[in-house]
Amino acid sequence: MLASEIMTREVKTIGPEATIDEAIAMLLSTRVSGMPVVDAGGRLVGVVSEGDFLHRAEIGAARRKPRWIEFLLGPGDIAESYVLSHGRKVCEVMTRDVATVEESAPLTEIVEIMEKRRVKRLPVVSGEHLVGIITRADLLRALSAAFAAKPAPTPAECTDKAILDRLMAELKAQGFASPRTLDVAVDHGVVTLKGEIFDERQRQALVVAAENIGGVTKVVDQLVWIEPFSGMTIGKIE
C-alpha cells in the first residue's frame, strides 16, 4: 500500500504570515491538532501544531531555563525560546524541519518515519509542493479497509488438515515457537494448543497465530510454561 492510496488530498493549510490567533482559530474550528504551512506558491515551508503553543507568555507558560544553563548555552538559545513564546506569526513558531514522504512511499516507510520522528502526521509532497497528508486516522482507515477486504476462507481451507498445515507453516515462518515442542490438534475448527513454551509471551503469540487462520472457530490453550533457569513447570498465568 502506497502513500497515494491512503493520504487525505484535501488538506487544511495555513500561510506563514498568518497570525497566531488565526492559526489557533483554524485548529479549533477544523478539530485537528496540526496543519501544514504553505507559501503562496503551494510549497511546504513548515508545520504548526498544538505543541507549538504550549509555552506561550499570554497564559503564563513561557519556559525559561535556569540562569547557569542559559549562560552555558548562550544568548541564541534564550532568543529562540523568546520567539516561540512571544512570536505573533505562524512563521515565527512553526516547525521548519518537517518530515515528508513522496506519493510512492510504501506504508512501511510511512510508519517507520512516524515512529522515529514521533509525529502524528506526515505531509505528502511532489517536489516541494504539498499534495496531501497522512495522519494516524488515515492509517486506521487503511487498516479497517484491509479487514473488510479480507476474503472468507474457502471450504477447502476450512478442513482440519488445511487449518493445521497453515498454522504450522505460519509458526515455522515467524520463528517465535519451535513446532518440535508443540502438540497442535484441530477438530472441527477447534485448535488445541499443547506443549512447552519457555517464555510466557509465546503463549499469546501462539493463540493469535491460531486465531488468524481462516476456518478456526475456537482456540483452546493447554500450553505449559517451563521457566528456563529453574526448569520449574508453570501453567497458564491468568
Rank of each mutant, 00 (worst) to 15 (best):
M1F: 10
A3N: 05
I6H: 11
M7P: 09
V11L: 06
P16F: 05
E22L: 00
A25R: 08
L28D: 09
S29R: 09
S29W: 00
R31I: 04
D39R: 01
D39C: 03
A40R: 07
A40P: 00
G46P: 01
R56D: 00
A57W: 01
A61W: 04
R64F: 02
R67D: 04
R67A: 06
W68E: 09
W68S: 03
I69G: 03
L72P: 00
L73S: 03
I78F: 05
I78K: 04
S81Y: 10
L84T: 06
H86F: 09
C91L: 09
D97M: 01
V98E: 10
E102V: 09
E103I: 09
E103W: 00
T108P: 01
E109C: 01
E112A: 14
M114P: 04
E115H: 09
R117P: 01
L122G: 06
L122T: 09
P123T: 10
V125A: 03
G132S: 10
I133N: 07
R141C: 04
A142K: 07
S144T: 14
P151G: 09
P155T: 12
P155Y: 11
E157V: 13
E157P: 11
T159I: 12
Q174I: 08
Q174G: 08
V184S: 09
D187K: 14
G189Y: 12
G189P: 09
V190Q: 14
K194V: 06
E196L: 14
F198N: 12
D199P: 07
E200Q: 15
R201W: 14
Q204A: 15
V207G: 12
A209G: 08
I213A: 06
G214S: 11
V216L: 08
Q222V: 07
I226F: 01
I226S: 02
F229H: 11
G235W: 05
G235F: 05
K236W: 13
K236L: 12
I237R: 15
E238T: 15
